[in-house]
Computed example of a mutant assay.
Amino acid sequence: MLVLYREPMDLYDLVIHETRSLEPVLGLRIIVHASADRAGAADKVGYKSGCLIETDADRVRQVLSNLAANSAAAGAAEVEVRVGRARHEGHGYVELEWADDGPGFPATLLESAFERFVRGTTARSTGGAGLGLSIVRAIVAAHDGTVAIRNGRPLSGAVVTIRLHPSARG
């Protein structure tokens, strides 16, 4: 069982801070955007304040680090991260979308990418153990969130979408 030490945290601020430290280490260009709320809130200040979640910041840093390492291992040079409020199936979430310009997930891995020891062909040549996305899924699930993968827009590579519940405090 994964133990979390939750505290109120603005996910947008956490992503900004962590990606700044990941960029030089992994050689990625990471651009972070505050997305407009799909339900209607468009101003960045009001929207950004809606990114408050009850989270274990160290675990979220681990998620971001794993996503960045996967993008770099796949050969991506650029990553776009969007953080903001979203609605899905009638529920409000704080959503993080991580998209890179790498080759994307092989079609054969789209169903199994979150399983332990599953690796793409590029990970085999770079020494990845195939645990990164399974750890991401475990951390997100421990936060009562969801995670999904696909290929495509905005950069035509891999896209990972994480949905977390907003804090009742904000």
Score class of each variant (00 low, 15 high):
64 L>V: 09
29 R>A: 11
68 A>R: 07
166 P>A: 02
124 R>N: 02
26 L>R: 07
168 A>C: 05
20 R>Y: 14
158 A>T: 15
144 D>L: 12
46 G>F: 10
23 E>N: 04
15 V>C: 10
9 M>R: 15
36 A>W: 02
126 T>D: 12
66 N>L: 06
84 G>N: 01
151 N>C: 06
30 I>H: 09
101 D>G: 03
139 I>S: 00
4 L>Y: 02
128 G>S: 12
59 R>C: 07
127 G>N: 04
18 E>N: 10
60 V>L: 07
41 A>M: 09
49 S>D: 10
58 D>V: 09
154 P>D: 15
167 S>D: 11
111 E>F: 02
4 L>V: 12
98 W>S: 03
99 A>P: 02
168 A>S: 11
45 V>M: 08
67 L>E: 06
149 I>G: 01
24 P>V: 08
162 I>L: 10
86 A>K: 11
122 T>N: 12
107 A>G: 07
155 L>Y: 14
70 N>L: 11
103 P>D: 13
59 R>Y: 15
143 H>S: 01
11 L>A: 01
13 D>M: 09
124 R>M: 14
138 A>Y: 13
85 R>F: 03
54 E>P: 00
166 P>D: 08
109 L>F: 08
124 R>G: 10
31 I>A: 14
77 A>D: 15
123 A>Y: 03
163 R>T: 02
138 A>K: 08
35 S>N: 14
61 R>D: 07
166 P>H: 13
150 R>W: 10
13 D>L: 14
169 R>A: 15
6 R>C: 07
43 D>R: 04
140 V>K: 00
70 N>D: 13
81 V>S: 06
168 A>G: 03
51 C>I: 08
138 A>W: 08
88 H>Q: 13
3 V>K: 15
127 G>V: 09
105 F>T: 00
22 L>M: 09
123 A>K: 01
159 V>Y: 05
147 V>K: 05
116 R>E: 14
43 D>V: 05
101 D>W: 08
85 R>S: 01
129 A>F: 14
10 D>S: 12
79 V>K: 07
141 A>K: 12
88 H>Y: 15
77 A>F: 08
49 S>C: 04
147 V>W: 06
25 V>G: 04
167 S>R: 03
67 L>P: 00
63 V>K: 02
154 P>R: 13
167 S>A: 05
133 L>F: 13
60 V>I: 14
126 T>G: 05
164 L>M: 11
116 R>N: 02
144 D>G: 00
84 G>Y: 04
72 A>R: 12
112 S>E: 02
64 L>N: 07
94 V>Q: 03
27 G>K: 13
95 E>I: 02
130 G>C: 04
47 Y>W: 08
25 V>H: 15
15 V>A: 12
57 A>N: 10
162 I>M: 04
160 V>G: 01
68 A>V: 13
112 S>M: 04
44 K>R: 13
96 L>D: 10
139 I>C: 01
97 E>H: 06
17 H>I: 11
80 E>F: 14
64 L>C: 13
141 A>R: 09
160 V>L: 15
15 V>K: 00
92 G>Y: 11
28 L>T: 05
119 R>F: 05
102 G>F: 10
68 A>Q: 06
147 V>P: 00
135 I>A: 03
40 G>S: 05
24 P>A: 11
101 D>F: 02
71 S>Q: 07
10 D>C: 08
6 R>A: 04
140 V>Q: 01
100 D>Q: 08
28 L>W: 06
